[in-house]
Simulated assay, not measured.
Amino acid sequence: MEAIVTLAAQRTDDPVLATAREQVLERGVGLDEAQVLQVLRLGDDRLPELLALAHEVRMRWCGPEVEVEGIVSLKTGGCPEDCHFCSQSGRFPTPVRSAWLDIPGLVEAARQTAATGATEFCIVAAVRGPDARLLSQVRDGIEAIKAAGIEIQIACSLGMLTQEQVDELVAMGVHRYNHNLETARSHFPNVVTTHTWEERWETLRMVRDAGMEVCCGGIVGMGETIEQRAEFAVQLAALDPHEVPLNFLIPQPGTPYESYPVVEGKDALRTVAAFRLAMPRTMLRFAGGRELTLGDLGAERGMLGGVNAIIVGNYLTNLGRPAQQDLDMLADLKMPIKALSDTL
């Protein structure tokens, strides 16, 4: 790890990295699609320099703080959509069965999340979009969390929204809304057929216009080409999201992607760094699949390669590593956890 940090102060003779240093680090201008593709094509011998530059960009344009978040599934399984990566789709023979979390369970999950030092708690539901029952339960859950005196910001991820539903969430005090584009626009029809990339984009537009923070990312390793990874990075950059969660595919039993290979660690780190160089000021969050793809030490390398946010604990239907391990890692790296907003 020290080698990566030390390299951050060194100039490079690689023209791709030299351009990125001047454009992104010095001027704060993200790389365009062609430039991101060049970064993704860098050899493994350049990976330490690339990670070092991405870390320096993160420190300059975002600062040293790390946002810690926990997530919980309010409604699990039985989703009518056919997202090929998802074990919660009711269209595939996966082991996941439909279930609802009651309000006391939701409050306890929020309490445990806040106890880790996290400032963000995301309520997630496996649905195409929320119906009246789901929105009512979200409202009751938020009110119960506040009544319990739990100081934490509430985010939601409830699928595609109408304008009326966006307005309802704003009135509930939802701080941030997550709705992932998942992959490049050109690759999306190979991943989902029951709705379009454009429908997701429209939800994100309404969320942003309503004043909620936009959280939007995706999954790496779903059969996309390296060119499509570059395409995806700049499409996210054009959205100007507050946060980008980066997931790496966990091949789920019963889904069409159950036999897909796991992304190699070096490719995952190269992708993280490339996305940082495309979005120098955006919160870049380690999300699902990092343990499988990178192993226990991979998180540390990623935190020194452009990442400045992390999900602790479990990922809906997949286990993460214990939250304390990540908190200990941040302490070892001397990366302060972002404080709770004074406006909460």
Rank of each mutant, 00 (worst) to 15 (best):
F232G: 03
A233K: 04
A233Y: 01
V234P: 12
Q235D: 04
L236H: 00
A237Q: 10
A237D: 08
A238Q: 15
L239W: 05
L239D: 07
L239F: 03
D240C: 10
D240Q: 15
D240W: 04
P241R: 06
H242G: 07
H242W: 14
H242A: 15
P245G: 00
P245Q: 07
L246Q: 01
N247S: 12
N247V: 02
F248C: 02
L249K: 00
L249V: 12
I250H: 05
P251G: 06
P251R: 04
P251Q: 10
Q252A: 15
Q252E: 15
G254C: 13
G254M: 07
T255I: 08
T255N: 11
P256Y: 06
P256T: 02
Y257H: 14
E258H: 15
E258N: 06
S259W: 07
S259M: 10
Y260N: 14
Y260K: 06
P261F: 07
P261D: 12
V262Q: 10
V262S: 06
V263N: 04
E264A: 10
E264Y: 05
E264K: 14
G265H: 06
G265E: 13
G265W: 05
G265C: 02
K266P: 00
D267K: 14
A268M: 13
A268I: 11
A268S: 09
L269W: 08
L269N: 04
R270I: 03
R270S: 12
T271Y: 08
T271G: 10
V272T: 07
V272K: 00
V272P: 01
V272C: 13
V272Q: 10
A273T: 12
F275T: 06
R276N: 00
A278K: 08
A278G: 05
M279N: 12
T282E: 09
L284R: 08
R285D: 02
R285L: 05
R285C: 00
G288M: 03
R290Y: 01
L292R: 12
L292P: 05
T293F: 08
L294E: 02
L294Q: 00
G295C: 10
L297I: 09
A299M: 10
A299D: 05
E300Y: 09
R301K: 11
G302N: 02
L304P: 03
G305C: 08
G305W: 11
G306Y: 07
G306M: 10
V307C: 12
V307E: 01
A309C: 13
I310F: 03
I310P: 03
I310S: 09
I311N: 08
I311R: 06
I311K: 01
V312Y: 03
V312L: 11
G313R: 03
G313Q: 02
